[in-house]
Design a protein around this nucleic acid. Structure first.
Lengths: 150, 150
DNA sequence: GTAGGACTTCGAGCGCACTCGAACACAAGG
DNA sequence: CCTTGTGTTCGAGTGCGCTCGAAGTCCTAC
């Protein structure tokens, strides 16, 4: 049963799962076939949300004879990729667009690149916002409980 | 009319308004009394949203004889403070809690500080997420249009 | 053979943060 | 005086990203 091997894997790498990277997924000697619960445990994305992602076309997941989802390496990689983008607030619609372009195959690279670069700009903007907010919060913390309108 | 002076001010500082800081608001020789449209123009927050913020208790705004909102320096500073926190994704509920504590006056400093430090931790977490996403996006951009599951 | 648990689909519901529209009030300029 | 513009309140609507529950299927262990 794949779940057991996974449990072990999660135990041994305990606490270290959040920084699960796309590359890591490739290297890690994970079982080739994962049940939805395993993917949920690995990625921190709920099974409900994983089904939702599939429903809206972000990822295609093969099934076994009984119709159950079987996540292979590719599907898992895709899920991790999606969560990284979501962590940076990339809208679902943009991710869907990107995935759509990949599905269309070659020739769509320019638009993919444009999408990524637009998102890269967004990320840089968000980083600046966060730095600014951090400065404000730090200032408040050092002046300790001052009025909030200053 | 205050709006005219403001228009000038916005014109002269054109393009430079987004980085409007809390401190800047103090220094800038802004009119002491601003109409809601002026605050909207200065902060980039819509009048609708400004009214919403007041409705839910994030900011108190004095009125003129006719019942119109008159933003003084304090109210403006508060709005800017709020937008900084919102830019860093601090939930409205947390901001409301903080504002509530300030309104309650002295003795609430410890909880205010705790709130700020919790939010500071959130910001650092978000920064890390963004850096991770940036790495993924940059990798994709350099490898230019590769599959999205890798 | 039967109880339990993990899975399936489907559609509806939720929480957040706005966002909007309707209907009305008032102030200043021509 | 009348129009135009800017404001007011109120309550309802929107969009996003999940999140949940119901009802059913299927494998596994006892």
């Amino acid at each position: 049963m794949t779940t057991e091997r996974l449990r072990d894997l999660i135990e041994t790498t305990q606490g270290e799962l959040p920084p699960l990277t796309v590359a890591l997924v490739q290297d890690l000697d994970l079982p080739e076939h994962l049940a939805i619960a395993d993917v949920a445990a690995l990625t921190g994305v709920t099974a409900h949300t994983l089904r939702y992602y599939e429903r809206i076309g972000l990822v295609e997941v093969p099934r076994d004879a009984a119709g159950r989802r079987v996540y292979d390496r590719e599907a898992l990689g895709r899920v991790v990729f999606i969560t990284r983008l979501r962590d940076s607030d990339m809208p679902i619609a943009a991710i869907a667009r990107y995935v759509e372009l990949v599905k269309q195959g070659p020739g769509t690279e320019p638009e993919r690149l444009a999408l990524l670069e637009a998102h890269r700009a967004d990320i840089l903007h968000r980083l600046a916002d966060l730095q600014a907010a951090l400065a404000v919060v730090d200032y408040k913390i050092t002046t300790y409980g001052g009025a909030c309108g200053t």
